[in-house]
Amino acid sequence: MTIVLIGYMASGKTSVGKILAQKLNYKFIDLDDFIEEKEHATVKDIFKNKGEIYFRKVETQYLNELLALSNDNIVLSLGGGAPCFGNNMNEVLDSSTATSVYLKGSVPFLSNKLIKKKIKRPLIAHIETVEQMTEFVGKHLFERIPFYSKAEKHVLIDNKSKPEIAEAIIAQLF
C-alpha cells in the first residue's frame, strides 16, 4: 500500500510522513527529494534553470513511477502543488494500491506556522506580516482546495502534534 500525503505548505506532510512510516514500518519517500535525487539538482535550481513546466513534467513522471511500486509499503509525501497540476490527483485516486490523505489545516493555523518559516520558502519569503500571510494563504489555498478535497481521507491538523496527526491517519486507514 502507498499512503499519499497531500496538503498545503507547512501542513506537516514530510514530518508527519516520517513518523507515520516509522509507526507502520513503511518506507518514507518525499517526492521533491526523489526528484532532486533523480535530476541531480535541487527543486529550486530546476525551477530556475529549466522552468516550472519542466519541473511539473518530471514531477508527474516520478509520481507515476512511485505509484507503480505496487508491492512496496510506502508513505509518499507530495509537494503542496503536485496534486494541482496535470492529472496528478486523478493518477493518485486511480491507483489501485494508493490511498490519499489530505492534511487539512485552517488558514489562520497555516499562516501562523508559515510566517515563522518564510525564509526557507521562496514563494512566501517576501511576505512581512501575519495579515499579509493570511491573505496570501487564503487566496492560494482557495485555488488548491478543489484538488486537495478529492483525497479519500481528510485529517484535521490544527493544534495537533505530529504524532497525534500520524495516529489520526492510522485510525482512518486501519
Rank of each mutant, 00 (worst) to 15 (best):
N159E: 07
K18M: 00
K13Q: 01
F85T: 01
R56V: 10
Y148G: 02
H154N: 09
V92W: 02
L66E: 08
P122C: 03
S15L: 02
N87V: 07
V58Q: 05
T99A: 10
G12H: 14
I6S: 00
F85V: 06
N73D: 08
L63R: 03
D33F: 10
R144W: 03
S111H: 15
H140T: 15
I19F: 15
L103V: 05
L93V: 05
I170S: 12
D32S: 04
L173I: 11
E152V: 13
R56P: 03
H154P: 05
G86W: 15
E91P: 14
P122E: 08
D72K: 15
A125F: 10
I53N: 12
K38M: 05
G79I: 07
F136Y: 11
S106V: 08
L78G: 00
I124W: 02
H154D: 09
I169N: 06
T42A: 14
L173P: 05
N88D: 09
H40I: 02
A151Y: 02
E39N: 04
I29H: 09
L103M: 04
E65I: 08
H40M: 03
V137G: 03
E152A: 10
L114N: 00
K48F: 14
L69C: 03
G51W: 15
E152T: 14
F28N: 03
Q132Y: 13
L114V: 02
F28P: 09
P83W: 15
I19M: 04
L66D: 10
A21C: 04
I3W: 00
A10K: 15
L141T: 05
F85L: 00
T97Q: 12
P83F: 14
K50E: 13
L156P: 09
Q132V: 07
V4H: 10
V16G: 03
D45W: 00
G51F: 12
L20Y: 12
E37K: 08
V137I: 08
D33S: 11
D33L: 12
A82N: 08
K150N: 03
F147Y: 13
K117H: 10
E36Q: 12
V155I: 07
L69E: 00
G17M: 04
F34R: 06
N87W: 14
V92L: 03
L31D: 06
K104L: 01
N25Q: 07
K104N: 06
A21P: 01
V16M: 08
V43T: 12
